[in-house]
Amino acid sequence: MDHSVPAATRATRACPGGPLRPRAWRCALLAGALVAALSSGCSKKEERLGAPPPPPPAAKPAACAGGGGTISDAASAPFFPRTTGGFCLDPNGGEKTFGESAPLPLDSICDMFDGECEIYKGFGVRRVVEARYVSGEGGSATVDVHLSKFGSTEGAYGMFTKRTVGDGDPADEATPRTIEGGGAAAMGVGNAYLWRGQYLAEITYNDEALAEAALKSSSEKVLPGLVKEMGAKLPGEPSLPPAAEALPRDNMIPLGIRYETKDVLGVDGAGPGAFGYYKEVDKRYRVVAIVRDDVDQAKDVLSTLAKLPGAAREKGIGDGAVRLMNKDGEGSATEWVFARAAKTVYGIGDEARVLRNGMTADEHAKLTLTKEEKTARLKKLVSAPAR
């Protein structure tokens, strides 16, 4: 356990739902309980001031008899079905809207997303709507929806991949699985993610009365249907950003794409691009695609990579190629080979998630492609017709 991390933060991380997740009642209560236990020595006055808020009131039976509530925000109302899977929009209303043409400032999403507003801003979020569905049978079950609009398709898709893959490994069994909806959608334990165009919907099933297994089962009956409905209603094309679309699909791990809106591999001037995660038997590797507006810009990317310490030009691959070693923090160095085909730069590199410092050469070889294997796959990529 990382004891340098505050206890409340550790409790929040322990809740399921991927690398990042909007605040859910059960996570908040877990963190709150842990903080309370660690703060038992506080004065009576402090205890009274720090008392947790009461849980949301349970829905009454037949809460959806009137067809459910409505969304008062005209810009987003068409995207929310009034009823879904035995739930309906809260008849008491109460949705909140933040950002452009909204009553609440965008900075207020910091409270809603557990202080992660800077991550959203980094991907270009412009507007967020928070809405709630309640059970038509009554009880404590609710479904919370956070619908974010970003300044670009790339920003919205980038945030989607941050939620589903983040800094983790999509081959991990805890990674959300693909479901149908919009341009891309995923289902975790009690939560789901939906992307289309400039929109990202993060949907959470809450019920304090259920253990995790029962919560998972109940959410599976409701969330996929809501994702599919909202995915059909959201505007924008469902096609992936060009760099993500350029990635090869053979041997790609499900949901194995991470989109970076800033410089890939942290290289200044490399620009945005998409990483794909791949597995062939026991060997793991990544492919990166960087698509520019024209050939000259793609040449500049390759030139930038060639200037990195230890980089070397390679011959006989596409319209120019570069080999380099990349090291991120304290992790093992990874080998990458890049090549250009017209206005696209491709790279194939080692999967850092399966490497560790101190591995023997044989251990390393069992999990990675050789330089020759990378080169062969790269030649195939750069000679293939553009999709």
Rank of each mutant, 00 (worst) to 15 (best):
D107V: 10
E118P: 02
P61T: 06
L34S: 06
G68Q: 04
C15R: 08
A102S: 14
G93H: 08
P81E: 03
P56T: 00
E46F: 10
V125K: 01
R26D: 14
L89I: 11
K96C: 04
P19C: 10
F87R: 01
A24M: 08
A59F: 04
R13Y: 13
S43C: 07
E47V: 13
R10K: 10
A33W: 10
S72K: 15
I109G: 02
R26G: 09
L30W: 00
P53I: 00
A11I: 06
R10P: 01
P19E: 14
R82F: 04
G115I: 07
E116N: 14
L30S: 13
G93V: 08
L106W: 03
Y120F: 15
F98R: 00
C88M: 06
P22L: 11
S101H: 11
G68E: 02
G115M: 05
R26S: 13
S76W: 06
P61N: 09
C64F: 03
P103R: 04
K44Y: 04
A8T: 12
V35T: 14
P22Q: 03
K96G: 03
F113E: 13
K96S: 14
G41A: 10
R48T: 12
M112Y: 05
T97H: 05
P22I: 02
K60P: 05
T83M: 10
S76L: 10
G122S: 13
P57D: 02
A31C: 09
G66L: 07
A11Q: 07
F113A: 09
K121I: 08
F113I: 12
E95Q: 11
A58M: 07
F79Q: 02
G115T: 05
A51Y: 09
L30R: 13
T9G: 02
F79N: 02
R10I: 04
L30D: 14
G17L: 07
C117T: 03
R126Q: 15
R13M: 13
G18K: 00
C88Q: 01
A37D: 11
T70Q: 13
K96R: 15
P56C: 00
D90Q: 06
Y120W: 12
F98T: 03
D114R: 09
P56S: 04
K45G: 07
T9L: 12
R126A: 12
P19I: 06
T84F: 06
A58I: 01
G68R: 01
N92P: 00
A11L: 09
L34E: 12
G17T: 05
S39E: 12
A74K: 15
C88H: 01
G122H: 05
R10V: 00
I109C: 02
P61R: 05
S39R: 11
P54G: 07
A36R: 12
G18I: 01
L38K: 12
